[in-house]
Design a binder for these strands. Sequence first.
DNA 1: ACGAAGTTGGATCGGCGCTCCATTCATGGG
DNA 2: CCCATGAATGGAGCGCCGATCCAACTTCGT
Lengths: 201, 201
Amino acid sequence: MVKRTATGSARAPRRADSLSRGLIIQAAIEILDSGGEKALTLRALTVRLSTGYGAIYHHVADKSDLLATATDDVITGVLSGAVADADPRTALRRLALGLFDAIDAHPWVGAELSRQPWRPALLDFYESIGRLLDALDVPGKARFDAAGTLVNYVLGVAAQNAANARLRADSDTDRETFLENAATQWTQIDPGRYPFVHAAA
Amino acid sequence: MVKRTATGSARAPRRADSLSRGLIIQAAIEILDSGGEKALTLRALTVRLSTGYGAIYHHVADKSDLLATATDDVITGVLSGAVADADPRTALRRLALGLFDAIDAHPWVGAELSRQPWRPALLDFYESIGRLLDALDVPGKARFDAAGTLVNYVLGVAAQNAANARLRADSDTDRETFLENAATQWTQIDPGRYPFVHAAA
DNA sequence: ACGAAGTTGGATCGGCGCTCCATTCATGGG
DNA sequence: CCCATGAATGGAGCGCCGATCCAACTTCGT
């Protein structure tokens, strides 16, 4: 016999597997990837997870919390996916390209990062860059400037790339050349920004 | 005698001064400046302009059109406000700082630009930078890269600045030092990015 | 066995962008 | 001079959103 609420409507049975914050965020990421930023609605989440609002809000503060945590997840993935490299310069390149690729694959990450540039995951990113620049014997102050310049540059180019992708949703033939452009531009920037270090190397 | 609609509700008299697209956008900018991005609602616009939805949608496609045009207006203001300067290098500095100040004064401009990096007004901005770099005898390809790097850097730093302002809504004592930092960082970037040109100068 | 604490589902609320249409008014052709 | 026409206007209403709230359910210590 189906139980009824006080208002007389039917009530679905409780889910078998228990919900968790991680599950919710993972579902949010999938929705964001498949449908873009505007596709992530609480309703869509309840449908995908076969649950209600209460369950979601029990594990998550609000929608912005959801977006922020999802973004952190992606960035952390980029960091952990970056293999250690003997040469700091190519390691930097790898890191920057990894960030670009991540935003290219999940455009909503770029938008969120430009909205909240001090997310913990992004600070970790700065930390890694700082260590690599340290290995390049870049002096302290310049190191900070360089990290900021690099990240801002990647975020900006990724945003432009996302805008391009929005304009023409197909013909990704020149996407590879675009990536190569970004790569070469960065390789130009690093030695150019620090001509002393570059000359020393 | 007050006229009544078919549903019997009262109808306000028609406004004396006629509406125009420019008026609507100006009102939108004022709302955005005073209350931030989320304060711009069609309802707020109707209240401020003492009008209805129909009048607004007759002059404007939709809300994104409103935001985009308002952003173009601000950027165009930065460009027209930049006085000609004999030295291309300080002219570049002025342009970059002008963009930063504009975003600092209207944070919603930064968010919109990162969402739509190819707005006509921003293209004009690139055009101006390109001309200045040409005056610096920067070769063609590097010129394009430099303009992109500069704009992306300013946008990124401005976004970080906006985030800072969001965190501490007061104590703008260190805002000046922040601006100076950005300025010196750019003066470092320009010669650093093109050590050849800088050495030649 | 039982009640407290932890979890879940969904009705509900206020507000949003936007559509639609009755109404108003300036204009110019007869 | 008049009135037909169409641009301009105001506002009710629609569908959807994020968020709240609470009854219903589960788990678990005792």
